[in-house]
Each structure stands twice: as C-alpha cells, then as structure tokens.
Design a protein around this nucleic acid. Structure first.
Length: 437
RNA sequence: GGGCUCGUAGUGCAGUGGUCUAACACGCCUCCCUGUCACGGAGGAGAUCGCCGGUUCAAAUCCGGUCGGGCCCGCCA
C-alpha cells in the first residue's frame, strides 16, 4: 500500500492507510498501547488493542523502523486530531540496542554536556527539538537565498583549496597539494570581489576554515559563511541598509514561521526595528567607558564585553537587538577595505552585532588599482604572489565601487534560536578538540 | 597562546575524609494498568567514582602528575 505521511493522516479519515517511520515512543497501558511513529513530516499516533501486535515490538527499542497499516479515525484526544486504529505492525528494521542519548525528551545543552551531545550527535539529532534547530537553519538559508535572488544576486562557489595564505591575517590550515604548498580557504574574499566584475552582485554560502587556537563559545574551525559582494554601490550607508533589510526580512520570517521550535528553546522575544541603530566604534568606546568606568578608548576593536554591552544598550534604547558598529579604527584595516575619505583614521567597515555577538563585517572595498596595490604593499603583501595577481587583474580591467559582507551563518542561527554556543547550531562541529563525528 | 575550572551507571545529577556495601531522576528489564501524550504503579539489573601515584588507621572526597572536557581573554564570522 502507498505510504501516507504523519502530517497527512488527518486528511485520510475513514481510510485504511500505511505509515512508515521510526518508533519514537511506546506507551503501554495494559489493554491499550499508544505508539508514536516519526517520519519526515512529524509524529503520528497509533492505538493498538491487539496484544499480539504489541508483542511484535517486545525487546525492540526506539528507532526501530516499522510500517503500520490501520484505519484513520478522527479523535480530538489524539495529537493532530486523528490517529490510526487497529494497527497491523510490520517490523522492517529492528533495533535492539537502547539509544545512547534520549530522543523523545529535550537534551541537555549545558556547556559541560555538549561533549556528550556531539559524541552522540547521529542519534541525538533525531530528537525533535534538536532537529528544530536545523529546520530553522535550513529555513534561514532559504530565506536569505530568496532575498538575494529577488535582488538579482548570482550564487557562486569559489575554490576551497587555495594557493598559499590568500588573505593574510587569520591562521590557515596548510596542506600538501601535489607537492605544492596550499591551504584551505579562510574566506572567499578575493574571489567574490573578482566576480563583481562579472555579475555585479554575487553571494556564496559555504565553508571557511580557520586554524586559530580559539576555544570559545563563538569559534569553530570550520564555519559556514555567507559572503556577499555587490558592485555599483556608492556609499557605506547603502551597503548597511541592504544587509539590514536582508537580516530583518530573514529573522522576522523565521519568527513568524517557527514559533513552536523557538518556544522549545526559550528563544527570546524578537525585538527589531526596520532601521538598525548605528554607532561608531569610537562612540561605543565612549559610552561603554562612561557606563562601566573601564577605559576602552585606545582599543582598536570592540571587546566581546563591549559587543554584549552595546547590544543590550540598543535593545533597551533603540528597541533593536541588531546594531551596527561603524567606522572601524584604521588599526583593524585590511588591505582590501576602503579607508574612510572623511576620516582617514577609520575604515568604511562596520560590524553587524546581534544579541551580543558579531555576526558580520560589512566593509566597502578599495577599488582603485593603484591605491589597492599600495595598500597591499603597506601590509607587506607581495602583489605578485600567487593568488593576488589574478585578483589585481580584476581591478586593472575595471571593477566598480563595491562592498559586501562576510556573515557567520552558524552564529546567526545560534542567536535566532537563542542558544549559547555556536557549536549547537552546527550539525557536526569542528573545533580545536573535535574532528569526529 | 594565557588564565580559570570540571571529570561519579547509557543519560542528567547528589555526595567535598569514616554512617558510601555510592543516593536520586530519565532510560533499560519483569509484572500490573483501556486515552496516554514528560502516562501511572510495584519490583529488578546497571558505576569499583577518568587514569596513575602519594598522604592517611581510613580517599569519590585531600595532594601531585596525566588524559579528556568546559568557560573567559587574545583573534575573528
């Protein structure tokens, strides 16, 4: 008989149907047994009176795959308003070992238990609340793609094996490439800029690899980045507006569509304004120093404590959990970023902060060939090094004023759901200690 | 890389020198239970307390080492 999904059960009242899936929960009440079956669409309840049917499941654990045929009955007491009666069970894949981690109750997300959570990830993800995180992640990426697509962006894939240390700065994973020195890409930065010369507007969603010895709740060695680059934008404001609209659109849709999952994780109530508040880094140093008595004026960038503080401030003061920290100090300048013509001590770069953490860096790029070449030399980068030669060609042969962002998808999902560790928003996280599963 | 912390059944935890023959909850096994949905009830199995060494009459508990985690900082997404 053709398979009917759990969520379609209520559309088949009065019919005899077959469902296929995993045993999610058994409740034996003597003469009456309730079984919840999980499939890709959710759960369906089966009621069995026949003891010989229940006996088929003796010794079999949660995770056992069955198909069950039965009559669909409307029942207000059943979850979803309908259930299967007179079920006939066929065990397809018996499971005799009990699961190492619970799949029908919320799992512990306490920091000290994350190790167990990840060690048992394969089974733990079957847990409905755990899945919820990744349904939201999937939806988040879908919303972002839809938004960018409707703004004429082309999705690209840049190489992840690159020559040398392409961008400078962050530590990279070195590897042997048929006898040549190569590394795993720490960012699609150079490639997406080159592609502005082709499509004007491009984006990429893919992995970036960071070999830094960071051991925090917000760092992983393999991060999923959303990289955006758009040509023919003239002002930094224009760029920030665009990213702000994308974030607003994405997050508000998630909150509208996934209330149930967000509630399970006690996600905070969403506070966003259409226009995200913007403060310069200097202003934030000033406000933070005044508020805490701790002098941060000479810091080149925001400290994690300042990031948390300004998010808290913007939430209370501006009604927005998202905030831009603009005019990054020149000390944090990277060669491809555009120096602020109105204030050469700052860079036309902003960090997007959300719920206490940096989600994205959003700079304008230096698109003048001569200036860019000089900026490279100032940073000690050889413009003729492998990788940079092609990069510069894009400028030599015409690249318009452009800007974009590197946007951490893992952190975004983490904070949308209201989690405390970026790893919880990653299926199989990689950090300095973890390489499996 | 620096600092601080933690390590007890499959899972989550209690116990910080002797009453520990290590408690409780979930899960598991047996039995009872016809509307459960974190079902309920009765009983049972399961841990030599990460590992090694030391102090002590006595160590899960104190000390040292070691292995494995976690958190913060630096760096960044």
């Amino acid at each position: 008989m053709q398979r009917v999904l759990a969520k379609e059960t209520k559309d088949n009242i009065g019919k005899n149907i077959t469902i296929k899936g995993w045993i999610h929960k058994k409740r034996l009440l003597g003469g009456l047994t309730f079984i919840n079956i999980r499939d890709r669409s959710g759960l369906v309840q089966v009621v069995i009176n026949d003891k010989s049917e229940v006996e088929k499941l003796r010794g079999l654990q949660i995770g056992t795959i069955v198909d069950i045929s039965g009559n669909v009955v409307e029942e207000t007491r059943a979850p979803g308003g309908a259930e299967l009666h007179d079920g006939v069970i066929n065990v397809v894949v018996p499971v005799v070992d009990e699961p190492p981690i619970e799949i029908d109750k919320p799992l512990s997300h306490k920091p000290e238990n994350l190790d167990t959570l990840f060690d048992n990830r394969v089974i733990g993800l079957r847990n409905l609340s755990e899945q919820g995180i990744f349904r939201i992640r999937s939806q988040t990426l879908k919303n972002i793609r839809t938004f960018l697509d409707s703004n004429d962006f082309v999705e690209i894939q840049s190489p992840k094996i690159v020559a040398g240390n392409a961008e400078g700065g962050a530590e990279v994973f070195k590897l042997d490439y048929f006898g040549k020195e190569a590394s795993l890409a720490q960012s699609p930065q150079l490639y997406k800029q080159m592609m502005v010369g082709v499509f004007e507007r491009v984006f990429e969603i893919g992995p970036a690899f960071r070999a830094e010895l960071s051991a925090t709740t917000r760092h992983v060695s393999e991060v999923t980045m959303l990289d955006i680059e758009m040509g023919f934008i003239d002002t930094h404001e224009e760029l920030l507006d665009f990213i702000q609209d994308m974030v607003y659109d994405t997050v508000t849709k998630i909150y509208a569509d996934h209330d149930d999952i967000l509630k399970k994780f006690n996600a905070p109530e969403l506070k966003l304004t259409k226009k995200f508040p913007r403060y310069t880094v200097a202003q934030i140093h000033e406000m933070y120093s005044k508020a805490t008595g701790e002098n941060t004026h000479s810091d080149k960038d925001l400290s994690p404590a300042e990031e948390r503080w300004i998010c808290d401030y913007a939430k209370k003061h501006d009604g927005s959990e998202a905030v831009f920290a603009t005019e990054m100090p020149i000390e944090a300048h990277k060669f491809y970023q555009k120096i602020n013509p109105d204030n050469p001590k700052t860079v036309l770069a902003a960090d997007l902060l959300f719920r206490g953490i940096e989600l994205a860096t959003c700079p304008m790029r230096e698109n003048n060939f001569e200036t860019l070449t000089n900026q490279m030399k100032e940073k000690g980068i050889d413009p003729n090094a492998p990788g940079f030669e092609s990069y510069l060609k894009a400028f030599k042969y015409g690249l318009p004023s452009h800007g974009g962002c590197g946007f951490g998808i893992d952190r975004f999902v983490e904070k949308i759901v209201g989690l405390d560790n970026v790893k919880e928003a990653i299926l199989f996280p990689r950090d300095i200690n973890r390489l499996v599963p």
